[in-house]
């Protein structure tokens, strides 16, 4: 002690008060690493979750909903009360909507998206590969792809109704087309992105053209293909709802459109919430799958 009297005066990190884990979870305190940074503004990694403020936002919104409706400031046909939504939810779960169970409305929308993306990928991936690997295929399909790329699938709905009517084929064909061009572009860019040294290495190791395609180009393009599938799912989910708004007897989109005609705003709101949750769920599942199936993503 007497040897180093000023030791005790120096501030030691461990002596400083540590914020609790709960405070860090809430985002009102930084983690220990960020706390020691002196440059925080401009450092994106120094921005914490700010969860407390998210909670405040949600609580405020819910409160505003409850307060304005219970005070009768908003008419129920514009925005329903809490209780009305709750009651409608129970009823929908119980009796379905127009004699179709709620899960069937949701299920058929999800099914249409899955079918569209599935067939879009089935056709789009080989086409994209061909375009990335052969001048002939590139020349043949480039005008079509470049023409279709900027057209929102929604703009095709009228044409599809004219051609195929309003049955299942029309909707799945529309979604197929929406997914197709996304998948072609994703696969093509996955192929073009292969590092030439990997291709060279494979040929020098005795691989044939087909082996290079299967063992180098394909796995190398998988991350991009997966991003394509993820994007296609998102776009198709938006498209299916819009298509159902226009013409369908079942599906979440048709449910909210029909409900609107009956001025059942509570059902409309429930439909919108379901659409949001499913869209978010699809995105999350795809991200999980991606982390699991393609752990090498971005590591080449």
């Amino acid at each position: 002690m007497t040897d180093a009297p000023d030791q005790t005066k120096r501030p030691v990190a461990a002596e400083q008060k540590q914020p609790s884990a709960f405070a860090m979870w809430l985002g009102i305190a930084d983690n220990s690493f960020t706390r020691q940074k002196t440059v925080k503004f401009g450092d994106a990694t120094a921005v914490n979750s700010g969860r407390l403020y998210s909670i405040i936002t949600v609580v405020l919104l819910l409160f505003a909903w409850w307060f304005t409706t219970s005070q009768g400031w908003v008419k129920p046909i514009y925005w329903p009360s809490f209780e009305a939504v709750g009651a409608r939810w129970t009823k929908l779960m119980d009796q379905g909507f127009r004699n179709v169970p709620l899960f069937e409305h949701v299920g058929i929308s999800v099914y249409r998206v899955m079918a569209g993306v599935f067939f879009g990928a089935l056709v789009g991936i080989p086409l994209g590969f061909a375009m990335g690997l052969s001048s002939i295929a590139k020349g043949l399909f480039d005008p079509i792809v470049e023409f279709m790329r900027p057209i929102p699938p929604l703009a095709l709905i009228p044409l599809f109704i004219l051609w195929l009517g309003i049955d299942e084929t029309a909707k799945i064909s529309l979604l197929f087309l929406a997914a197709l061009f996304i998948m072609i572009i994703a696969a093509r860019s996955g192929v073009s992105g292969v590092k030439i040294s990997k291709v060279h290495a494979a040929y020098s190791l005795g691989a044939s053209k087909f082996q290079v395609l299967k063992n180098v180009i394909l796995p190398n393009a998988l991350p991009e293909i997966f991003t394509g599938i993820r994007t296609a799912m998102g776009v198709c989910w938006g498209t299916v709802v819009a298509a159902e708004l226009v013409a369908a007897e079942k599906g979440v989109g048709s449910m909210i459109m029909i409900a609107k005609n009956f001025l059942q705003t509570d059902t409309v709101v429930i439909g919108i919430i379901i659409i949001g949750i499913i869209g978010y769920g699809i995105e999350m599942i795809m991200r999980l799958l991606e982390r699991w199936l393609i752990p090498w993503r971005g590591k080449g």
Partner: peptide
């Protein structure tokens, strides 16, 4: 090669 020619998958 110098680097990055391994098959990361």
């Amino acid at each position: 090669f110098q680097q990055g020619a391994l098959f990361e998958w």
